[in-house]
Structure formats: C-alpha cells, structure tokens
Design a protein around this nucleic acid. Sequence first.
DNA 1: CGCCAGGTTGTCG
DNA 2: CGACAACATGGC
Length: 270
Amino acid sequence: MIVFEQITDLDLAQTLDCGQAFRWREQPDGSFAGVAFGKSVTVRLDGGDLVIENAGEADRALWRRYFDLDRDYGLIRGELSALHPVLKEASEYAAGIRVLRQEPYEALCTFIISQNNNIKRIKGIVQRLCEGFGEPLPDGEFAFPTARAMSALTVEELAPLRAGFRAKYLFDAARKVDSGEVDLALCETAPYEDARAELMKIKGVGVKVADCTLLFGMNRVEAFPMDVWMKRAMASLFPGLSPESFGANAGIAQQYIFHYSRMHPEIFQN
DNA sequence: CGCCAGGTTGTCG
DNA sequence: CGACAACATGGC
C-alpha cells in the first residue's frame, strides 16, 4: 500500500470517470479499481490521503507521476479563473480533475477507439482488447497490450473487439508505433505542431485524437481537444474565444469545460 | 425503431 | 478549401 498524504485538487470520480481514461471501475465502497503501466491497483481517498492498494513502495514514483501530483492545480485554477467568469465557474465545478499521465500508446489506442463512439462502449472495447491481447496479471486483470503484440495480429483477429471500422486504425497504429515509423517518445518533447503531425501519420488519427493522445498520454497540457462537446461549449459559452485564449494550460481548462458541459447538457438545448 | 456517440476519411463541387 | 455521406456497433 502506498499513501500520499493530504492531496489537494483531487476527486477520484471526476478524474477517473471523466472520459480521459477508460479502465477504471468504481467499486461499491467508492474506491476505484484499474490497471495502468501493467499494475493492477485499487485507489481511494481517505481523509485527504490518496491510498494506492496492492502497490509497493517501489512504485511510489510511478503513481505520483500518474496522478500528476507535482502540478499545482490550485494555482492553475486561479490563473484560469481570472481569464473568464464562465471558466471560473467550470474550474470550480470540476476542481477535482487532474490530467492523468497515461501510457502514450494506451492513450493513442483508446482515443482511436473513441471516435464517433460513446464512453460506455469505448470501455467495453478497451476491456476486450486488454483481455484478448494484454499480458495477464497475477490478480486476473490484464495489462494494456503492447504495440508489438498488436502488430503481430491481423485485422481479422481484432474482430472480437467489435470495434467496427476502427479496427484497421488500431492495427495501423500498432504497426507504425512498433516499427518506429511513428515515434511516440518524440511526441513527448517535439514542438506541439510537430508532435501532432507525427501522430497524424497514423490512419484514423486526426487532430482531435492526436490532441487527446498528447494531453492524456504525454501530459502536453497545451493541447486542447475539440470534440462535439467542446465545439458546443466554445460556441455558446465562450463566443469569439479560441483555445489559445486559455494559454499554456489550455488542456487543463479544456478538461474543466468538458466536464462542466457534460454535467450540464441543458445549457445547450436549442 | 431512430438518433447519436470525446471523428476521420474519401469524394465532390 | 468546405460540405457531406459513409463508416460498425450498440446505448438509450
């Protein structure tokens, strides 16, 4: 068990079930079970402490990084709140969201799956992908499959995922990442536009999937994924503003606005 | 049953 | 360039 004492700006339900990660399941007791970096754990918040069950001290740095605990979200929220009154409202409403630092390849694949899809079904496809092709873990869970493992398959073998037309995109991603034709490590450090272009060499990866991969898999918080919800939100809540208006932490603003919008669909009636 | 889902691609004008 | 259907599948 690992304990991070007195963690602020963290709500597990907001962070783990806001559509940035697809492998966390809420338990009856309010904790969340999930797998990241090949480690199956249960996490909970206990009196302000973040508790990671089924993890050893050796993985402390891994989980500190995964939950982005070294970033001062309170400070960022203050800066964003000063920019626009509605952004202030959204950031206060979603104040418990942190941008997870997921495995880059997992983020890439899950957001390829996400296109023209709904979160419930995305989770099912991801689960079948892990069970079918990921390394089994001691407790019966499965790691997210590697690009190497997936590139060794055929598109036909991906059929049981029921991923539909996205299967060929997953296969192309696996093949290009495994071969090095697409360099994910490069995307972590390259200038934003270059990183985006690198990811878009994959069939089925457009600007939105690329931005989600950069934001959720590489902690590129300048990325601002524009999905249907964000288009609606920008048009009706922030007319005339562009993602650049939100500065270097636009991606964090995006998460606040996305969650706020999804929880208040009535705002966008007619 | 029909519309829609954290989009992208291919095709036409 | 901008618009728009097609894409697989299933949730609601």
